[in-house]
Design a protein around this nucleic acid. Structure first.
Lengths: 127, 127
DNA sequence: TTCGCTAACGATAATTGTTATCATTATTAT
DNA sequence: ATAATAATGATAACAATTATCGTTAGCGAA
């Protein structure tokens, strides 16, 4: 039996209101001022649960996991320079799953794409 | 100045001779019988170095990093059931980078694709 | 509305994967 | 052969995450 909790709501709302693909800690520190009693464990617990429920997405970027409140299909770019993660929306998935299904002897249920390179700002500076 | 080492050779050879995308620990335990003095730190050290040299690829799958001795462009599927990682070779990259470059205001230098689903064996059993 | 059950919490210990440190070993230029 | 130092093995340190456990609070039934 799943119960409602203020903490889970706050975590979900915080994640959905931002587009920087925060880590668990990012969310924790972002909520701490308005929820001083919040525990980091609660953030981890709820992010895992929300991910399990398919309400948020977990992005596996080197080392630390990042989260995304946008569950519509889209891709990400991890900036080599600043470490930020940015959205890349493609009008379609390039038939990636379909193509893969044709050649792979198993069942494909989803996919994620992580580009590497330089974000807009870093590309102008460093290139 | 980079020096030759028996350990690095063994690690590289071990990785290139297998197709199960092992973790650092997998490689460590695989080599331990024939190299009893091998240290896990040496495995981590050399995997990082080989990756930096572009001789092997690091796959970011949930939690633990896995490695791949095949540096030709190809994708992977992580099996939901058995946790194994399998190769998916596509004749081309579906123009993924080209498409992304067109719509992304930055510079894209590479990409990785991780499919999720069921591998051949698990699909037959569990579906 | 109160009561009781227990999911979820907060605090923190434990675990896991990985990196850093450091004394020792071994590779390689001279 | 020798000297310089890259790489090693052992292990401490670290960072991210999960587990534990006593307490709190959401919520269905009385």
């Amino acid at each position: 039996m799943v119960r409602h909790s203020k903490q889970r709501d706050a975590i979900f709302d915080n994640l959905c209101s931002r587009y920087d693909h925060p880590t668990a800690e990012d969310i924790y520190f972002s909520l701490k001022p308005t929820m001083p009693a919040l525990s980091l464990a609660t953030v981890y617990r709820n992010l895992s649960q929300l991910e399990g429920d398919g309400k948020i997405i977990r992005i596996e970027s080197a080392g630390t996991a990042r989260y995304d409140g946008n569950i519509n299909l889209h891709y990400h770019l991890s900036c080599i320079n600043c470490g930020g993660v940015f959205d890349i929306f493609m009008d379609n998935d390039c038939g990636l799953c379909k193509k893969a299904s044709e050649i792979f002897d198993g069942k494909i249920t989803g996919h994620s794409v992580l580009f590497t390179g330089y974000c807009s700002a870093c590309n102008k500076q460093v290139g």
